[in-house]
Design a protein around this nucleic acid. Structure first.
Lengths: 193, 193
DNA sequence: TAAATGATAGAACGATCTTTCTCTTTTTGC
DNA sequence: GCAAAAAGAGAAAGATCGTTCTATCATTTA
């Protein structure tokens, strides 16, 4: 009786593969996780895997797509909360910190992926570049709306700080990074701590 | 007539292996570079490789050791320059920036390695942790000597900023990161820009 | 000079990698 | 209810992975 397609028309096997791979790629790295492992834990056969993803790299790109969509969703939710522009800046910064502390304790999926893909022309690196470009401009528009002076420079600093928070949270522990991040982010965005 | 040991008593083959591996590991990632590739480019045989490094992981740790030694050397050179403590802070910050801009354009070797080694108990991750611990305390002592108020917090911020500079320099290009890094680093260390 | 060490050369191990294939069963869309 | 599509099951390809081995040759050390 088990259905084979999910409510939004996608395939159950595909979604299971993507969820399993996302978890494994993030937790253990991309080259370290083989296709056998993914299909085993997803409870799916090899043929099914290759029906949905022509190659492993397609799956990797889909994984980054999931991470990208998650973050875009978080921004969209914050913006839909009806907060005033200046409040939104604080919400975004708190949201970034909360994300590092609770969900991304193994570093940034994009930074980690880039460490494994040196070729800047590869699909993976293009996905990374596009995500970062979006993130930067999204921050800039939030800061602009809040009338932060020199929003472009401030956005650049926030990108910098979030990269550092991701890396430091992973390698040194979030508690050790939190004070420096909070102070610097608040100052960069021109809000009181 | 070619000698088999180098001037400081080490083995020529070992040094060639280490130099080749360091280059390849940094440029292309660790799991992406196989032993065959390393011995091929080093012009050394498999048996020689395993004589000097019982396993690939030993070579990886030796590679991180080289990177660690390079940075320690740079700090030692700056300290031996005879600059006054307050000048030394500026020298160090400039040195970090210069290093990112010129030598470490593929990111931080330690951060990249950690992305590929999720097990915090592994030898690689221990090497990463030790390096970061040393780096942090070294910065703190430089800042303390310059009588920077709250050197511990300032050191934490500089670690953060250097991580970010490494990552951002690799993924976004150094020119895009430089302004934010320079401004934030100078402010964190309490020196004028 | 003799013995010990280090390096060369190359085959080969078993494991794992990504990918392709055939065949059967189940579910979906019309 | 029927044809088409999706998934299950499993073998197997071919490549590469890290590692071990047995030889032979060159160099260093005693």
């Amino acid at each position: 009786m088990a259905t084979r397609t999910t409510s939004n028309g996608s395939s159950v096997a595909r979604e299971k593969l993507l969820a399993t791979a996302s978890e494994l790629f993030y937790r253990e790295g991309i080259h370290s996780v083989g296709v056998d492992r993914i299909i085993g834990e997803a409870g799916v056969t090899r043929a099914t895997f290759y029906r949905h993803f022509p190659s492993k790299e397609d799956l990797v790109e889909a994984y980054l797509g999931v991470e990208d969509a998650n973050i875009r969703g978080a921004f969209a939710a914050a913006e839909a909360s009806g907060a005033a522009p200046k409040q939104l800046v604080g919400l975004v910064i708190d949201g970034l910190a909360d994300d590092v502390a609770r969900h991304h304790t193994r570093g940034c999926p994009f930074i980690n992926a880039a460490a494994e893909y040196p070729d800047a022309d590869s699909g993976v690196r293009k996905a990374v570049a596009e995500h970062r470009e979006w993130f930067r401009s999204e921050l800039e528009s939030v800061l602009s709306a809040a009338e932060v002076p020199d929003a472009e420079e401030a956005a650049g600093q926030l990108v910098l700080l979030r990269d550092a928070a991701m890396v430091g949270g992973y390698l040194d522990g979030w508690e050790r990074v939190r004070p420096a991040f909070s102070a610097a982010a608040a100052r960069a965005a021109g809000v009181q701590e």
